[in-house]
């Protein structure tokens, strides 16, 4: 065991360390550049931007179009979180407590679905399915919301399932039942409180996904229902600094999400 921990296959620690540094740089360099760029007055033809300004952020948060799309993103994101949670919690519970194999495989299928199904395909399907003469949902934020829920299910289901599997739920439930608790009382007082970390992790992931999601938003929304990423796409051609600022907002949402999630996992380890 000992030599393997130190010098696996003759690769020296040095090479491994180099590989790790390279990886960290590879991931961080673009992010850092975006961040720097968002504060630069002018960035064209030079290695790094010149000057320092907050102008781009100021423009971003004062222009109506961006504010509206930000609000739209928050609305769709929040609704997606709520709906996904309401769908995921009973599903996880049912799959976990049932002994049937079939249910389990159905569940596994649901979890890999977003990978197997390109968003463009669901997008074109939704556009055709909900385009009736008397009521067309095409171009409304509702349709985007429906689609986001479909793609968010795994984000919500996975942490909740992991959370539930950490508990000895079957015995907890039996203990509660033997004490005379009704089904609803068990859900309210034991199931939901004990799943709160899982639900919260799922909610954060779902929100981050929905907020930054570009592909479905591009297909499904119209100019009235544009979410932030779609509006942002148009900023690409406004100017480097402004575009950097607009993109940095998305990066921050992702970053904060991961930071908070990380907090959780260390909390959980402590318990």
């Amino acid at each position: 065991m000992s030599w393997m921990g130190e010098k696996p296959f003759g690769l020296s620690q040095f090479v491994l360390r180099l590989a790790r540094s390279f990886l960290a740089m590879y991931i961080l360099l673009p992010v850092v550049l975006l961040f720097i760029g968002s504060f630069g007055e002018k960035w064209f033809g030079t290695l790094l931007p010149q000057g320092f300004t907050l102008e781009w952020y100021w423009t971003l948060f004062s222009e109506k179009m961006y504010l509206r799309s930000l609000r739209m993103s928050v609305l769709v994101g929040a609704l997606t979180v709520i709906a996904t949670a309401l769908l995921a919690i009973p599903t996880v519970y049912a799959v976990h407590t049932s002994e049937r194999r079939l249910l389990r495989s159905f569940f596994d299928a649901v979890v890999v679905l977003p990978i197997a199904l390109p968003p463009i395909v669901l997008g074109i399907g939704l556009v055709q399915a909900y385009n009736w003469p008397f009521l067309s949902l095409v171009g409304t934020w509702q349709l985007l919301f429906f689609a986001h829920v479909i793609y968010s299910i795994p984000f919500m289901v996975k942490p909740i399932m992991a959370n539930l599997e950490m508990l000895d739920w079957k015995t907890i439930e039996e203990a509660a039942e033997s004490l005379g608790a009704s089904q609803w009382y068990i859900v309210r007082r034991l199931l939901l409180p004990n799943l709160r970390l899982g639900i919260l992790s799922g909610a954060i992931m779902t929100f981050a996904f929905s907020f930054g999601e570009f592909q479905l938003a591009l297909i499904l929304t119209s100019s009235e229902s544009q979410t932030y990423p779609v509006t942002l796409y148009q900023a690409f051609y406004v100017g480097t600094g402004f575009a950097c600022a607009a993109v940095t907002v998305l990066v921050l949402v992702a970053g904060v999400t991961l930071w908070v999630l990380n907090r959780f996992s260390s909390l959980r380890v402590m318990q």
Partner: peptide
């Protein structure tokens, strides 16, 4: 079970965490 008026103690405690 909840109407049988029993008390139960489990091997792994099953306290509500």
């Amino acid at each position: 079970p909840r109407l049988r008026n029993i008390g139960m103690v489990f091997q792994h405690y099953a306290l509500f965490p």
